[in-house]
Amino acid sequence: MSALLHGPLTERTVHLCIDMQRLFSSDGPWPTPWMERVLPTVTRIAERFPERTVFTRFITPERPEDMPGTWRLYYERWRETTREYLDPGLLELMPPLARLTPPATVIDKPVYSAFAGHKLADHLRNREADTLVVTGSETDVCVLATVLGAVDYGYRVIIVADGLCSSSDEGHDSLLSLYSKRFSQQIETSDSETVLSSWRK
């Protein structure tokens, strides 16, 4: 891939890493087969400026009845993932990433988009962020929802293609195509080497 479309990254760039948790690893009930493969790439990006990294965690409800509408139906189907039954350790970040907190920030969320509620939006506003480098899981679910939220807020968004994972090869490939073609004016798609070489301060 070529250099970043809108130039190098600055001190106002934040690495937003979505849901790289044991919940979605081979140990969890929702395994994402590529997670272990992309973990070294995600770790390298997080290590560049850990104080500018935000990790999100997808936190399941205590029980299905705690969620509204179709989310309640969802957790009736996946009752074993509710906190009533789930090993709480599975909600933690993958160990190489957990070691970076602090200085990295952790923001928990109950739904797909990290922009649901106000915590992430407030955090980014307070640190005067203007650009988000996005990695994480899953390309076609929580990453998708969060990236569209970031676009709505007007952030420069850079998708790290080799820093994403999904449980669906088809979904992953389709979304990378969508990001790079349909949203090409608002979303840049790059690889980790290009991102790291463009982020020096």
Rank of each mutant, 00 (worst) to 15 (best):
H118Y: 14
D87S: 08
T81A: 14
A116C: 12
W71V: 00
G117H: 00
W71K: 01
L73E: 15
A104Q: 01
W71T: 00
E76N: 11
G117S: 03
V111D: 07
L100Y: 06
M67P: 00
T105Q: 09
M67T: 13
R99Q: 15
L73I: 09
P110A: 09
P110E: 10
M94F: 06
K119D: 15
L86T: 06
K109R: 08
Y74K: 07
F115W: 02
A116H: 13
I107Q: 03
L73Y: 07
T105R: 12
R79S: 13
T70Y: 12
Y74F: 10
Y74I: 00
A121I: 12
Y74G: 00
T81D: 09
G69I: 03
L73W: 09
A114F: 02
V111E: 10
A98L: 11
T70K: 05
P96T: 01
G69Q: 05
A121M: 09
Y75M: 07
Y112F: 13
Y112R: 13
T101N: 11
P68A: 11
D108S: 11
T70D: 14
M67H: 05
L91K: 02
P95Q: 09
R77E: 14
M94R: 08
P88I: 07
R77T: 10
L73C: 05
T70W: 13
R72F: 05
A121V: 13
S113E: 06
L86V: 07
D87Q: 06
L120H: 04
R99W: 06
A114S: 09
R77D: 12
P110H: 06
R63Y: 06
R79T: 08
G69M: 04
K109W: 03
H118G: 12
P103H: 06
P103Q: 06
L93G: 01
